[in-house]
C-alpha cells in the first residue's frame, strides 16, 4: 500500500513537471509554430541555474523559479524577436517556416548545450533538498513540497490562459493567428511571448527536477523527446491535452520505474502508440 501511494505521489509530481514542459512546447509549436528541439536544453539550464543559485547565494531551490523562469522567458522573447521573427518574415509559407525553424532550433540545441558544458562542465551534479521523510511514510518531504508547488503553478498558469486578456489572445492566436490579428491582437508580440513562456516553463520544470534528481548538462534531449510524445499524445496544439498527457506519462514513468527502471522509455512509447491507435488525433484532438 505504502509503495503504491509513493508511486502515485511521485507519478503525480513527475506528471505535473512533464505537464509544465509539454505545455511550454505546445505554446511554442501550437502557437508560435516552432518545433523547438532545444526545449529540453532550457530545462537543463533551469536546473543548473537553480543548482548554481543554491551554491553561490544559498537560494532556496523552489524560490529560485522566480529567477529561472523570468530569465528563460526573456531569453525566449529575445530569441523569437530576433531569430525566429526573421525566419518567419523571409518564409513564403508557414510550412517553409516550420522547416527552417526546426533547423534553427537544432542549432540552438548545440549552442546552448555546449555553452552549458563550458560553464558547468559535464559531470553529474546534485544536492540535497528537504530529504527528511514524512513520519512513517517513506515519501521524502521534497516530493510533497514540490508537488504542492507544481499544482499551484499549473493552476496559476491555467488561470492566466483561461481568464486574462493576454491568455485569451494566446488561445485565440493558437486557433487562428489571422483572425486574432483582425481582433486587434499584435501577433508579433504574442508569438514572442508564447515562445518566451515556453522556455520559462521549461526552466521552471528544470528547477523543480533538480530538487529530485541528479543533473547533468546532457539531460535536455531526453526531456525534449518526452515533451514531444506528450504533445502528440495530448493532441497537437491542445494545452489541456498536454496537461493530461503529461500527468499520464508521469504516472506511467513512476510505476514502471518502480518495477523495472530500464523499461521506462519503452513504456512511454507503448502508451504513446496505444493511445494514438485508440485516438489518432490525441486525447483532446478533434
Amino acid at each position: 500500500m505504502i509503495a503504491f501511494r509513493d508511486i502515485f505521489i511521485t507519478g503525480l509530481l513527475l506528471g505535473g513537471i512533464f505537464a509544465l514542459v509539454s505545455v511550454g512546447l505546445t505554446l511554442q509549436y501550437g502557437v508560435a509554430r516552432v518545433l523547438n528541439v532545444a526545449h529540453g536544453e532550457f530545462i537543463m539550464v533551469g536546473a543548473f541555474m537553480t543548482f548554481w543559485l543554491l551554491g553561490s547565494a544559498n537560494l532556496n531551490p523552489l524560490l529560485s523559479v522566480a529567477i529561472t523562469g523570468p530569465v528563460a522567458f526573456i531569453m525566449g522573447f529575445i530569441l523569437h524577436k530576433t531569430l525566429f521573427r526573421r525566419l518567419m518574415d523571409t518564409s513564403p509559407s508557414l510550412d517553409i517556416f516550420e522547416g527552417k525553424s526546426l533547423l534553427a532550433s537544432f542549432g540552438l540545441l548545440y549552442v546552448v548545450q555546449n555553452l552549458a558544458r563550458i560553464i558547468w562542465g559535464s559531470d553529474v551534479e546534485g544536492y540535497n533538498f528537504l530529504n527528511s521523510t514524512v513520519t512513517a511514510a517513506q515519501i521524502p518531504l521534497n516530493r510533497l513540497v514540490a508537488l504542492a508547488f507544481v499544482v499551484v503553478l499549473g493552476g496559476a498558469f491555467y488561470f492566466f490562459l483561461a481568464r486574462t486578456r493576454l491568455g485569451k489572445a494566446i488561445r485565440a492566436s493558437a486557433q487562428s493567428p489571422t483572425t486574432a490579428e483582425l481582433m486587434g491582437v499584435d501577433i508579433r508580440n504574442v508569438l514572442a511571448i508564447c515562445f518566451g513562456l515556453g522556455l520559462g516553463l521549461a526552466a521552471i520544470a528544470g528547477s523543480l527536477l533538480s530538487t529530485l534528481f541528479a543533473i547533468q548538462t546532457s539531460i535536455g534531449l531526453g526531456y525534449t523527446v518526452i515533451a514531444m510524445v506528450v504533445v502528440v499524445m495530448g493532441g497537437l496544439g491542445s494545452i489541456t491535452g498536454a496537461m493530461i498527457g503529461g500527468i499520464i506519462l508521469g504516472l506511467v514513468s513512476s510505476t514502471v520505474t518502480f518495477f523495472h527502471p530500464s523499461l521506462t522509455m519503452i513504456a512511454y512509447y507503448v502508451i504513446f502508440i496505444v493511445l494514438l491507435l485508440a485516438r489518432p488525433k490525441g486525447i483532446m484532438g478533434k
Binding site: 489572445a169 485565440a172 487562428s176 489571422t178 483582425l182 481582433m183 486587434g184 491582437v185
Partner: peptide
C-alpha cells in the same frame, strides 16, 4: 473592423470569450 469570410469564430472558445476577443483593442 473586418468581419472575415466564412465567419472564422474561435470554435474552442465560448460565445462570450469570442465577443471579448472582439473588444481586444
Amino acid at each position: 473592423s473586418h468581419i472575415p469570410e466564412s465567419r472564422q469564430v474561435f470554435t474552442e472558445m465560448s460565445v462570450r470569450e469570442n465577443l471579448e476577443m472582439g473588444a481586444y483593442p
